[in-house]
Amino acid sequence: MSTVAKHLAYNYRWVYGIFMSIMILMMAGLALSFEVFGHYALDDQRSSVWETVGLQAPRWFLFVIGIMLATVNLPVLVAHGITRRLFARGALVFAVASSAAFSVLMLMGFVVERAVYSANGMMAAIDDYPLAKVSDAGRFYVEITLAGLLFLLSGWVIGLLFYRLRVWLALLALPVVTLPVIGGIAMGVSTMAGVEMSFVNVVLIQLAAVVVVSALGYFLGRDVAIKPKKA
């Protein structure tokens, strides 16, 4: 692992640890609420609870991490003699690892929730459960990992935009930047929502979005000036 990736892992160990613990606690809470309250707990439930709690929250968390990488870590590491290129390379490794790690928990949550719902005979009442079949877990994992990576990378790009440009300019540029992100995610989400599209096509579209956003991040970051800090 590169020096930069190691440094970032060390730097975010507490934040990650806390967020992951919360996810595990939620999972346990979800399972326990059934043990305690029986199916009254989720009697009117027509959709997945975990989809909101366990899928969307971590994505926005990764998005914020992307912003932090660009606006907090990059300047400090450049000041410590690391080039922007080396930082970007290490940050990408860290980003992939982050998304992969969070996706394990995201997937686990669905498996747990699914088991709980099934045991209580609720699956039939829920339309379009994100994890359609347990046997789809592998494909599902790849899709959510790529989507998480896209969130993190777009955070990186947006962070750089605001770091580099005056606020109003960054706001103007924002829609252009978010297009590929929205596209990539929409594809992922729509398949999960049941729109027919083959796994390979989804992954290809997501990968294309990753490439476009990474390229944007690279061009915005490769000659960014480290701003003076306020004392």
């Binding site: 730097n11 300047p75 400090v76 450049v78 000041a79 410590h80 003076p228 800090k229 306020k230 004392a231």
Partner: peptide, 11 residues
């Protein structure tokens, strides 16, 4: 190594 006016770029 450059230490700037604010006292260095650190977290």
């Amino acid at each position: 190594c450059l230490i700037r006016e604010s006292g260095g770029d650190v977290y």
